[in-house]
């Protein structure tokens, strides 16, 4: 069985769902950040797969994946800094305990 576009998309979907599940269920803010990373990487797999199978001559999908990786790095840095700041101010990184937005 030759590996095709569908396989990549299935893998990507599973990865995305795992990430989403992590984001929605984890209480630890760091774990949530990791979930977000998973979702971003699922998107990257999609981009590269489409680039390989749909338009092999173009490189825009790969370039876009690189941008997303960079963005993910930045996001991780900012996210971890936020977590650190939250921990310093509130002495917890459990998101259900950080409910300052509640009315």
């Amino acid at each position: 069985m030759a590996v095709g576009l569908t396989h990549y998309l299935v893998i990507s979907t599973i990865l995305f769902c795992l990430g989403l599940f992590g984001v929605l269920t984890r209480r630890n803010a760091v774990a949530i950040l990791m979930g977000i990373e998973l979702m971003l990487n699922a998107g990257n797999i999609n981009l590269v797969a489409f680039n390989r199978y749909v338009a092999p001559g173009a490189v825009s999908g790969q370039v876009f994946a690189l941008v997303v990786i960079t963005l993910a790095a930045c996001e991780a840095a900012v996210g971890l800094a936020l977590v650190m700041a939250a921990y310093r101010g509130l002495e917890t990184i459990h998101v259900d305990e950080i409910n300052l937005m509640k009315w």
């Binding site: 929605l24 409910n99 509640k102």
Partner: peptide
Amino acid sequence: LRYAQTGAPQNYLLVIA
């Protein structure tokens, strides 16, 4: 409507998802 606002982002995300 304010009872719908839990203030927990994960809830909102769940709804969005």
